[in-house]
Amino acid sequence: MLRKFSNSRTLKDNIQLGSLSAFSAGMVNVTSLIIFFAFTSNVTGHYAILAEEISKGNWYQASVVFAWIFLFFIGNFVSNIIIINFNKNNSYLAHSAPLIIEIICLLAVGYYGHFYYRETLSETEIMVGTMLFAMGIQNGLTASISNFSVKTTHLTGLTTDVGILTAMFTKKKYRQNKQLRSKFNVLLAIAASYLAGGIVAGVIYYEAKFLVFFAVSAVIGFIILYEYYKLKVTKFIRIKRTSKLRKSILETT
């Protein structure tokens, strides 16, 4: 899910990565909407708000929204800088590191919110910025390693693609195209996971408040650990096979 890069990824890899990361993105977005009244996993609306605040002459609000958009951009930048520079040495580490940074950001928001949050506007602005940075990191990572076929927080593009594909599927030749059907499955998995994540987070929030961020971190942590486990298993199988092969060669000679 995390190790393979670009075109070497399978449909299963993309569905797994897309579903889990979209689930966490949905959780973050709904929680921030409930607590802070601001979206944190999509920036299309923030561009519209930025334009609105500038046109109204609300420079303070415009500055805050610009900083949020910039933090989302920086999140994408940071994750791709890590991938570009470390992918050749250790692809697992290069792809896990951005997720670890994301977990740190979300845990910081959860911890601060649970123990220190006094509901001031400046705290809200900083925490929303931190979450946008975290979501930028996640989106940058998933889009980059999946060759732009998985964008977990970009549901405008996703809905557009689903609409286009649905229209294409009215023709038999497109319905029989395996690649298009695979893409459709990935998109549906992402949309369903995003929605499910949002609903789960909403339910958890009313029971556990800021601790919901620990649950989101656990989901992202699962992605990293699952990959680590698979890496170990693959390595173990490879070693076993090699030793078996060596043994059989020795026996024949």
Binding site: A38, E53, Y60, Q61, V64, E119, T120, T124
Partner: peptide
Amino acid sequence: WTMKGRGNILE
């Protein structure tokens, strides 16, 4: 009272 969002919500 407190404010949320970017200062657009009065709670």
